[in-house]
């Protein structure tokens, strides 16, 4: 890292950004995680997936969880959504202890999880109908949400005919239609190609700007984390613990032009330091292995 750019510290924030974080911390706490631990029994002994996690997520915050593989980020989001149970500790939503999944905590999964037998519109109506909303009202609301994610003209299509990005937009619309208190996204763009992923990030930012919703986002993509979040929770593996909670110094509104700004790069560099394993020592000279016998000049 000798010839890298001179970057400011990721801790330095502009006045506007500092002001924004002050406001954010004054907002009421939406989700509170208290001393959360999760242990798995394996044949090799006990595995501590999560150890003593404490976290406060404020209203209308965009928080991202990042960490090396096996650090328990998926376990964490699943426990928060109520799909898994912690070994100890509590999850409180607006002060109420949560047990089991519920409509107030929406979730978007990596593998889309749209109901293939329902049309796009009916997929979005699913949660509304379960809540007991009349089908006419549910349909009207579903169409509004499809309008927001830009898929109104595919309302009658089946999920099977949509591309991955479109499916994920439907999944987001389906979760938001339920008006959840908090929305969990578990590596939602992990299966998408780079271009679709970039446009999906833009979509998500736009939706988040227009909809009053708190978001907890899990990813392993550093750019994605910095680009989208207010704060980034970095987890460490084995045992899964909080390494650092970074306040992203990049001002909002965000746009792809910010990818090369000093604040962005500084934050990303910090994430790299936290997550990437130490570089492999390269002191041995390994002769090139020739695959053909040709004695050319190629080195």
């Amino acid at each position: 890292m000798s010839n890298s750019l001179e970057l400011p510290s990721y801790l330095e924030k502009s006045a506007a950004v500092s002001e924004r974080f002050k406001k954010l911390h004054r907002r009421p706490v939406k989700l509170k995680v208290e001393d959360l631990s999760k242990k798995f029994e394996t044949p090799k002994g006990e595995l501590v997936a999560l150890n003593q996690i404490n976290l406060e997520i404020h209203r209308r915050e965009f928080i991202t969880v990042i960490g090396p593989s096996g650090c328990g980020k998926t376990t964490l989001i699943r426990i928060l959504a109520g799909l898994d149970f912690p070994t100890s500790g509590k999850v409180k939503l607006e002060g109420k202890k949560m047990e089991g999944p519920g409509a107030e905590r929406g979730m978007v999964f990596q593998d889309y999880t749209l109901f293939p037998w329902l049309s796009v519109k009916k997929n979005v109506m699913f949660g509304l109908e379960i809540k007991g909303l009349g089908s006419q009202k549910a349909e009207a609301e579903a169409m509004e949400w499809l309008e927001i994610v830009g898929l109104a003209k595919f309302a009658e299509a089946y999920p099977g005919q949509l591309s991955g990005g479109m499916k994920q937009r439907v999944a987001i619309a389906r979760s938001l239609a339920n008006r959840p208190e908090i929305l969990f996204l578990d590596e939602p763009f992990g299966a998408l190609d780079a271009q679709t992923r970039a446009s999906m990030q833009a979509y998500l930012l736009k939706i988040w700007q227009n909809v009053d919703v708190t978001v907890l986002f899990v990813t392993h993509d550093l750019d994605e984390a910095v680009y989208l979040s207010d704060r980034i929770l970095v987890l460490r593996a084995n045992p899964g613990e909080i390494d650092e909670l970074i306040e992203v110094p990049v001002p909002r509104p965000r746009d792809p032009g910010q990818f090369l700004t000093p604040e962005f790069l500084a934050t990303k560099k910090r994430l790299e330091e936290l997550i990437r394993p130490p570089e492999l020592a390269q002191n041995e000279e390994i002769p090139m292995i020739r695959l053909t016998e040709v004695g050319d000049e190629v080195e």
């Binding site: 959504a81 109520g82 799909l83 089991g100 999944p101 519920g102 409509a103 905590r105 929406g106 979730m107 999964f109 593998d111 999880t113 749209l114 109901f115 699913f126 949660g127 379960i130 809540k131 999944a171 389906r174 979760s175 339920n178 969990f184």
Partner: peptide, 14 residues
């Protein structure tokens, strides 16, 4: 049947 469909339905309040 994919378990994730059931989980998705649960997070939708089913």
């Amino acid at each position: 049947l994919e378990n994730s469909l059931l989980e998705a339905a649960q997070t939708l309040g089913a």
